[in-house]
């Protein structure tokens, strides 16, 4: 609910300090430091296994850090923040035998929208936003992969959260859909929403306000796409060049 909860004054949307996490004895995150102000889109770029999903799961409170802290709007992650955080997991995570509207309506209720009128309006708005208003009654199994992904995004933003955590939201999307997703993301950040997005494609990276290159469970570089491109020292280098250059010089394994 945008603006309604005014979480802890003006704390940053996300503030992570010396965060470490290990699955048993296997370290996954090795000292993450990150500060994301409100109203920007931040992209976590990294190869598979770099720790992107683990970081997102720590931010929704599904995992507990081994050490260090992660704060969202100045508060520790968890159910108390559910109102202000929207989460889109890597799997589509939808009920396949239910329709688009039923899925959205169900998760809206889980997010605490118990009054049916405003909920119906929120569900309708979410469907409109992801361009599925005409498929409201379609059961998930009847939808294409890209449509399912749009429903999944719709679920994440049905309650108009102040922060969106999107775990690889554009994987498998065709270029047209990808640019549609990014149009929405731009509109949302302009309206004050903060978006954290994990991805391994440089095409997504170019759209973000700022970026963090992740490797071996830590950020090897952060900055705007422009800054990172310059880091190679060559005038016309791409983000991909920058990522490879920084990876090589970081000395950190995957």
């Amino acid at each position: 609910m945008n603006g309604s909860s005014a979480q802890s004054g003006h704390a940053a949307a996300i503030s992570i300090n010396e965060l470490e996490f290990a699955y048993g004895k296997r370290p996954v995150l090795n000292g993450i430091n990150l500060e994301i102000p409100r109203g920007v889109s931040f992209g976590i770029l990294g190869a598979n296994g770099a720790g992107k999903t683990t970081l997102v799961r720590l931010l929704i409170g599904r995992l507990e850090p081994t050490s260090g802290t992660a704060l969202i709007f100045g508060r520790p992650p968890g159910p108390a923040l559910a109102d202000s955080v929207g989460y889109m997991p890597q799997l589509n995570a939808l009920y396949e035998s239910l329709s688009v509207r039923e899925n959205l309506d169900f998760f809206a209720r889980m997010l605490g929208m118990s009054d049916s009128k405003p909920r119906a309006a929120a569900v309708a708005r979410a469907m409109e936003l992801v361009g599925l208003a005409d498929r409201a009654k379609s059961v998930i199994t009847e939808l294409s992969g890209g449509m399912r992904q749009r429903v999944s995004l719709g679920v994440a933003l049905v309650h108009e959260p102040e922060l969106l955590l999107l775990d690889e939201p554009t994987v498998g999307l065709d270029p047209e859909l990808r640019s549609m997703f990014w149009r929405h993301f731009k509109e949302m950040t302009e309206a004050g929403t903060t978006i954290l997005i994990s991805s391994h494609t440089m095409d997504d990276a170019a759209h973000c306000d700022s970026l963090g290159f992740m490797r071996g469970g830590k950020f090897i570089a952060t900055g705007t796409p422009g800054d990172l491109r310059k880091s190679t020292g060559e005038p016309d280098s791409t983000l991909e060049d920058a990522f490879l250059h920084l990876s090589r010089s970081s000395g950190v394994g995957t």
Partner: peptide
């Protein structure tokens, strides 16, 4: 396995 529990647990579900 389909991830809906993970999504549910990111809401205020008890």
């Amino acid at each position: 396995s389909q991830g809906t529990l993970e999504r549910l647990l990111s809401t205020a579900v008890t």
